[in-house]
């Protein structure tokens, strides 16, 4: 058991083992998104209030889920990197950050598009929208800080610290923004106060969420694998691998 974990922690061992996970993950992601997407977009009933425009939920909610989970995963990877000095954790964190920022943007953008038919405006200073926007800025900060350092190790450790500080602050920001909103104006629009969805609506949503998660894990795995090759390019095993492929 310990030998396996040790092997998993080393770039070379991880590269060899993760090769087996990649195909099933991609297949699962493709199947879930395909089934959930067609079901949700074409077959599930239209909302009695919002009509067909509610179908944006099938992209919006999974993206919003991922946006928050990726930040937590990134901070966890940063913690592992800082405590146990496992380089692999930092590679994964570095690869997650742009994906998380992208997902936050997708959530914000799809929310804005959804806002036009339902609220009649592109942007509303709603508590959820605002905290999502702040999350986007936090992602940008982590990415920019990593890039600003000349040495890779310094950037990696600085980004880890900032991700951990950010993850402590996210709940504080979230609740203070919610409180601020209720102080200033009554909650006119709320996603949560919508009547409970029938199964034909939420089942495809669940499939989409799971599909997005599989997609995220697969992309991170793939990008981490290529990052391993890039960072270890001077090592013997990578050279041997290249020779083999040739």
């Amino acid at each position: 058991m310990w030998a396996f974990i040790h092997k998993l922690g080393s770039p070379k061992g991880f590269y060899a083992i993760s090769a087996r996970w990649l195909t099933p993950l991609w297949l699962a992601a493709a199947a879930l998104i395909l089934i959930g997407g067609t079901w949700g977009l074409a077959f599930s009933p239209a909302d009695y209030q919002q009509g067909d425009s509610f179908r944006i939920i099938y992209v919006h909610v999974p993206a919003a889920f991922l946006a928050q989970s990726i930040f937590v995963a990134m901070a966890a990877a940063g913690f592992v990197f800082m405590v146990w000095k496992i380089k692999l954790a930092d590679m994964a964190a570095a690869m997650m950050a742009p994906l998380g920022a992208g997902m936050t943007f997708v959530a914000l953008f799809s929310g804005a598009v959804w806002g036009v038919p339902t609220w009649g405006t592109w942007w509303q200073w709603d508590a959820r929208l605002t905290s999502m926007l702040i999350l986007f800025f936090l992602y940008i900060g982590v990415i920019a800080l990593r890039g600003a350092f000349a040495s890779r190790d310094g950037g990696a450790r600085a980004a880890s610290v900032l991700a951990m500080v950010g993850v402590i602050n996210i709940p504080i920001i979230k609740y203070s923004v919610e409180w601020w909103y209720t102080l200033h104006q009554p909650a006119t629009f709320s996603i949560t106060s919508k009547p409970a969805m029938p199964a034909a609506m939420w089942l495809p949503l669940l499939l989409m969420v799971l599909g997005f998660y599989c997609f995220f894990i697969a992309v991170t795995l793939m990008r981490t694998r290529s990052e391993i090759l890039r960072r270890e390019s001077s090592k013997r095993w990578v050279r041997a691998l290249v020779e083999e492929q040739r």
């Binding site: 702040i134 800025f137 936090l138 940008i140 900060g141 920019a144 800080l145 900032l162 500080v165 950010g166 602050n169 504080i172 920001i173 203070s176 923004v177």
Partner: peptide, 9 residues
């Protein structure tokens, strides 16, 4: 850029 989001609360 790093600090302003954390100042919001």
């Amino acid at each position: 850029l790093l600090v302003l989001p954390l100042y919001i609360p």
